[in-house]
């Protein structure tokens, strides 16, 4: 379980806030989508969960423990992270990329290899033909699958995904979204998923948190949000632009 309590974040010493008084929680095995346009604070919120950014004020708990009580390195190794713009290591093979977290955790070579094969199969990139390649030899969609495989490698309880499909073309994106839905069912991870794509949010999220200029406009299931929009902003979002995209 991930729980945020009255989180504030300012990057300029309090003149303005990227995130204002945000409280929310993500239940075990649940997928929460943070939806919003760029600059709404969604990525900042995500990064605060694994301490890539630290909140100015407020408490974040992961598994019932304040993240500030974790060693940041240990914390991050327990949380899978899929980066916006992929973030694979260009000098490592696909195999090395997927194995990196288990390697950092000191797994034996054999169990690393086993895990790597399993994961590459899971994301549809058979190890025989892909393990020895380098990221720049793969298409964008294939690279992002590797990104997902890398995030899952150490079998983390939590998965943070920062617009993982944002840079992909529409067809590839849809395919990957479907695959993610399947994975979700198989793996039962607690997932926080950031996107600016309404359609994607409605498709993937068990619940959706709508952020606007650092404020939480509404949090709820697809049905809650569509039937009873909490604010004017949320209502406009789904009447004017549906099923479009925030930019």
């Amino acid at each position: 379980m991930i729980k945020l309590t009255h989180i504030f974040k300012s990057f300029d010493g309090g003149r303005s806030y990227a995130v204002k008084d945000l409280s929310l929680s993500v239940g075990k095995g649940e997928t929460l989508v943070l939806l919003g346009s760029s600059g709404c604070g969604k990525t900042t919120t995500l990064k605060m969960i694994n301490r890539l950014i630290e909140p100015t004020q407020g408490i974040i708990e992961v598994g019932g423990k304040d993240v500030m009580d974790y060693d940041p390195v240990d914390l991050r190794r327990q949380i899978g992270y899929v980066f916006q713009g992929i973030g694979l290591f260009p000098h490592m093979t696909i195999e090395q990329n997927v194995e990196i977290v288990p390697r950092l955790l000191g797994w034996s070579i054999r169990s690393r290899q086993e895990r790597m094969r399993e994961l590459l199969d899971l994301v549809g990139l058979p190890a025989e033909s892909f393990a020895q390649r380098f990221p720049d030899e793969l298409s964008g969609g294939q690279q992002q699958r590797v990104g997902v495989a890398r995030a899952l490698a150490a079998n983390p309880t939590y998965l943070l995904m920062d617009e993982p499909f944002g840079a992909l073309d529409a067809l590839t994106r849809e395919a990957l979204q479907q695959e993610l839905l399947n994975l979700k069912k198989q793996l039962k991870k607690t997932i926080v998923f950031v996107t600016h794509d309404l359609h994607e949010a409605l498709l993937i999220g068990d619940r959706i948190a709508i952020l606007h200029e650092g404020n939480l406009e509404q949090i709820g299931t697809k049905k809650d949000i569509l039937d009873t929009p909490a604010t004017q902003f949320v209502q406009d979002l789904f009447t004017i632009k549906r099923p479009g995209t925030l930019t």
């Binding site: 890539l52 991050r76 980066f83 973030g87 290591f89 260009p90 977290v101 950092l104 995030a151």
Partner: peptide
């Protein structure tokens, strides 16, 4: 971006340097 990934997956500082930045 690459360095953020290195940090985000849980590399220690010297690991970021030796495994990613220097190569």
């Amino acid at each position: 971006e690459v360095m953020e990934a290195a940090q985000g997956i849980g590399m220690k500082e010297y690991q970021q340097l030796m495994m990613v930045r220097i190569p």
